[in-house]
């Protein structure tokens, strides 16, 4: 047995030596490298990251290094800890809620005007702040199949008895889309009515998943007839699966919008490169890549011309707002209370 251990130790030290040496050669971060934190689906081969990197590096002297961000909340907390030692030059994938939460904790660089033809829906986001650049967006609504028997025109229609237990929703305590739906309800109805509505909606919900993927999985598996998702979701099925049976539903109420922002922390090391990359992200070529790979709408109008995305009807949307933390917590608490009292 001693020999067995000796062999193990030998193999282990050999492999360690090999990898330690290899790392020294590979992980030399060049001065021209822009370190960008982005989500796994952005960095993945089927996401926009690789194509953006390739195109950007062709056009510029900078090199792009994507670092997968486990969760925006964790990345922001890490930035907050590292302060001056933080290595991030650019953070992608921030939403309205992240911006509000991080405002007090992290200092961000003020951005110059990076594009002058932003579409009206997202341009509003730039009026109240100049530290974050929107790079894609989509209104959120309910997505169903074309053979859905129930006519849905407004939020109240979701309470029809045929839909009892047939709507896949996300938990607002753990999911950004779930929070969007909750805020949408509170924004479009007076508080008392919103609470009554939420109570009724609990019975219509098939389930509240921890994240968007859980709810969408249930919907795809036909466990639910409707799911709260993006108006762009059906485009994925048309393009990738050649299935045009999915539809996003237009509502009488103006829809909430999910915008993805990019921001440069003040502690950036290659700030010039990060700004250059942001400028590039606002270009028509980059916007097309993001749109096609992320299945979200571009922030500049011309990018979607003559594509499947041009056919998407962008329904009436709510103006973008950055909510106070206290307000969000109050709504969450109300939701939790209703859910808790729902019984077994």
């Amino acid at each position: 047995m001693k020999h067995f251990i000796f062999f193990l130790a030998l193999i282990f030290s050999g492999l360690s030596f090999f990898y330690f040496n290899k790392e020294d050669k590979v992980n030399v971060v060049e001065d021209r490298t822009i370190r960008i934190y982005a989500s796994a689906s952005f960095v993945a081969k089927w996401g926009p990251g690789p194509a953006l990197k390739e195109l950007f590096e062709k056009q510029n002297i900078f090199k792009v290094e994507f670092i997968e961000s486990p969760d925006v909340a964790m990345t922001l907390q890490k930035l907050n800890f590292e302060k001056q030692n933080a290595s991030a030059d650019l953070i992608l994938g921030l939403d309205q809620f992240d911006i509000a939460r991080s405002a007090a904790k992290i200092e961000w660089r003020t951005l110059p005007a990076l594009s002058d033809d932003m579409i009206s829906e997202v341009a509003g986001a730039l009026k109240s702040q100049n530290q974050f650049m929107p790079y894609d967006w989509a209104p959120m609504t309910f997505v169903g199949r074309q053979d859905l028997k129930v006519q849905i025109d407004q939020l109240d229609d979701l309470l029809k008895p045929e839909l009892k237990g047939r709507i896949a929703l996300q938990d607002p305590r753990t999911s950004s889309p779930g929070l969007q739906l909750l805020i949408w309800i509170f924004e479009t109805k007076p508080t008392e009515q919103a609470i009554v509505y939420l109570k009724a909606l609990m019975k219509q919900a098939h389930s509240f998943s921890a994240g968007w993927s859980g709810a969408y999985g249930l919907f795809k598996n036909k466990q639910a007839d409707l799911v709260f998702s993006y108006v762009t979701s059906p485009i994925y099925h048309v393009v990738e699966e050649h299935d045009s049976s999915f539809v996003s539903i237009e509502m009488k109420e103006a829809l909430p919008i999910q915008i993805e922002f990019a921001g440069i922390p003040k502690t950036c090391k290659n700030c010039e490169g990060a700004e250059q990359f942001l400028r590039f992200m606002a270009s028509q070529e980059a916007q097309k890549i993001i749109m096609n790979k992320n299945y979200m709408l571009p922030v500049i109008e011309r990018a979607k011309e003559a594509t499947e995305f041009d056919a998407i009807k962008v329904y009436r949307t709510l103006p973008i707002k950055f909510y106070d933390q206290e307000k969000i917590e109050k709504w969450i608490n109300q939701w939790t209370e209703i859910r808790k009292n729902e019984g077994l």
């Binding site: 907390q77 753990t174 389930s207 921890a210 917590e329």
Partner: peptide
């Protein structure tokens, strides 16, 4: 467990692991 109580939980979907995540995601 985290995801199962949320999906199938009804009113009892809240457990300690969900609370931990909520403190991170919502309250930071």
């Amino acid at each position: 467990s985290f995801s199962v109580p949320l999906v199938a939980g009804g009113g009892r979907g809240t457990n300690l692991e969900v609370l931990i995540y909520e403190k991170i995601f919502i309250n930071q």
